[in-house]
Design a binder for these strands. Structure first.
Ligand SMILES: [Mn+2]
Ligand SMILES: [Mn+2]
Ligand SMILES: [Zn+2]
Ligand SMILES: [Zn+2]
Lengths: 160, 160
DNA sequence: CAACTAATTTGCAAGTCATGCGAATTAGCA
DNA sequence: TGCTAATTCGCATGACTTGCAAATTAGTTG
């Protein structure tokens, strides 16, 4: 995601208007490393701009993605997560709290399948699944592990 | 996913019944490398067993996942894809046709983030995105590229 | 083999996430 | 200040998945 200053330029270049809603959402995403969902952003946006519509949040996020200002991340936890960092990086997903953090992996970009050579690769993504330090710590203290579910199961179970 | 022979054992071990529906779905998934959706399986299952319910397909797939016989794959194309191969392998996703193929990546299991060392890694997944040979070929022939959308956009656009 | 019963299957309702649509509003420009 | 195309908003709709309870059935028991 570009700097706030170039936002207007980016929008104009696409023949788009610079609305307050777009500015707010851009601002909320700028340098945001939490990989929020549309609902997360809607909640934050609503605090600063009561009345803003969830529809507009989705719309704006889709536009920003089309403009290449952000990317979508799907980790199978239900809702799409948005990432303003479109540079070279990867992710570590905590199977306990669902947090997604940015990580860097040396040589990831040059990874290639040992088979399937007849496939034009545009992008390589690495995802680490495991337990973040915060969860690991709280886990050792109390909280007995009730029900061992797969990551996906867990994600889906916590939906309600 | 285990051999069909051990299916009964696996089920009994979990105090479950060996129903015709479960046998059919297991059979359809066994050594299936297409990473089908629940709807895909429902269609195939319906052909062989008219009247089988989509609900049962979902239920059985969830059970098999709980039993560790298969895994879920989410590539952000809408529906969950199911994979009977729970061994060490990775995936290549065609952004054009959505096909997911199995690939192997040397050293993938030992990849580590250069940062975030305080994260217990349980699993490492690599996803290659690009264009499969079939799409690449048909692309060179006719079909002019109309509208360049991101992979996710594309997947979502083709939903309807 | 018939009865029994807990597990399973089904169909439909409901839930979640995201998009389609059209009326009301507004940014950017003349 | 006015115009107009773009945008916002709210609600309907759609795709995918799960909750629920009545009907059915696998597997056991006698
Ligand atoms: Mn990121
Ligand atoms: Mn696979
Ligand atoms: Zn965590
Ligand atoms: Zn393809």
């Amino acid at each position: 995601m570009q700097s706030p200053a170039s936002l207007a330029v980016a929008y104009r270049a696409n023949g788009r208007k610079l609305t307050p809603q777009r500015q707010l959402i851009f601002q909320l995403m700028h340098e945001n490393e939490t990989h929020p969902t549309a609902e997360d952003l809607f909640a934050q946006a609503s605090a600063q701009m009561p009345g803003i519509s969830l529809r507009t949040v989705y719309q704006t996020l889709n536009e920003l993605a089309e403009m290449g200002e952000l990317q979508f991340i799907e980790i199978g936890s239900g809702a799409t997560r948005f990432d303003p960092n479109v540079g070279d990086h990867h992710h570590a997903v905590c199977d306990s709290c669902g947090q997604i953090r940015d990580v860097h992996v040396r040589g990831a970009a040059t990874l290639r399948p040992t088979d399937s050579t007849d496939f034009v690769i545009n992008e390589v993504g690495v995802v680490f699944r495991g337990i973040c330090s915060a969860c690991e710590t709280s886990r050792r203290k109390g909280s007995s592990q009730r029900g061992a579910k797969s990551p996906v199961q867990q994600a889906k179970a916590s939906k309600k």
